[in-house]
Amino acid sequence: MTPNELNYLPIEKLCLALIFTIQKLKHYFQAHTVNLISKANPIKYVMSKPVLSDRLARWYLQLQQFEIVYAPQKAIKGQVLVDFLANHPLPAEWELCDEIPDEDVLNVEVIPPWQMYFDGVVHQEGVRAGVVFITPQQDLLHYSFSLSHKCSNNIAEYQALILRLESTADLNIPQLEIYGDSQLVIKQLT
């Protein structure tokens, strides 16, 4: 769109899109009736202007050449359900009842996820890492360990994360949220 076209009203942008479509697919518009599904009727907008500008007059002439039928978007959404039910009637032998079988099936228990916080640190005495799990029942599980080789803070955090993720397979954790203070590790994890 040109800078001037960006300043158009939303309905004028819709008219412009319709005109562009007509120019590119003119052979389809000539051969068929076109159903325009939209929240606003651009054809009505163009025709309702008492004085047409040069641009609107050109659009009006282009729109009048073709058979375009406007259908509001709300009507189409509701019509889909009606069309489906009309095309798929219930067999006569089916009985309808008001009872809902297996009402317990509709109950869903939402279990909060486990949370894992990890951190690693490098200092003069060595490399240490720690992980804390918080269960859905708010129980805390602490794990800390030392790494035997010298490394950077990021590598220590990677090691803390990797070692604890491997152990989560044994814990049968259905859902786990992971938190850490290293943006580098978090971005690479996601």
Rank of each mutant, 00 (worst) to 15 (best):
V46T: 04
P174D: 12
N41R: 00
T33E: 07
T33Q: 14
I162C: 07
L14M: 14
R128D: 13
G130T: 02
A40F: 02
T2P: 03
R55H: 08
S148P: 04
I11G: 00
N7D: 08
V69A: 06
S144E: 07
P72T: 15
I155V: 10
I68W: 13
M1D: 09
Q138T: 06
I134Q: 07
V80Y: 12
T190I: 11
L6E: 07
L90P: 01
E109R: 06
V132C: 04
P89M: 00
W59K: 04
V185A: 09
V131H: 02
D181A: 09
S167Q: 13
G180L: 03
H27I: 15
L163V: 11
L106C: 13
D139E: 12
I68N: 08
Q79R: 09
S152Y: 04
H88E: 03
V131G: 00
F20H: 10
H142D: 01
L36V: 00
L25Q: 12
H27Y: 15
E103F: 13
L16F: 11
E5Y: 01
D54N: 06
D181G: 04
D98K: 08
Y158M: 02
V51M: 13
C97I: 14
A31Y: 14
P50H: 14
L56I: 07
V82E: 03
H32A: 02
K150M: 13
L85P: 00
L141W: 11
S53D: 10
M116I: 07
N35R: 14
L52P: 00
Q137N: 15
A86H: 09
K77Q: 07
V34L: 08
A156G: 06
V127Q: 05
S38V: 03
F118H: 03
V110E: 08
F118P: 00
S152N: 10
I173A: 01
D170M: 07
L171R: 04
T21W: 15
Q183M: 15
A156R: 06
E95T: 10
W114R: 03
S146A: 10
N172C: 14
F29H: 03
A57C: 04
D181R: 03
Q137M: 10
L171C: 05
F133K: 08
Y117I: 02
H149Y: 15
E93D: 11
N35E: 10
A71M: 10
K77H: 12
F118A: 02
L141R: 12
Y45Q: 03
C151R: 07
D119Q: 04
H32M: 05
F66W: 09
T2G: 01
S167G: 01
K74S: 05
D170V: 03
A86N: 12
Q124R: 15
K39E: 15
L61F: 09
A17C: 12
I76D: 01
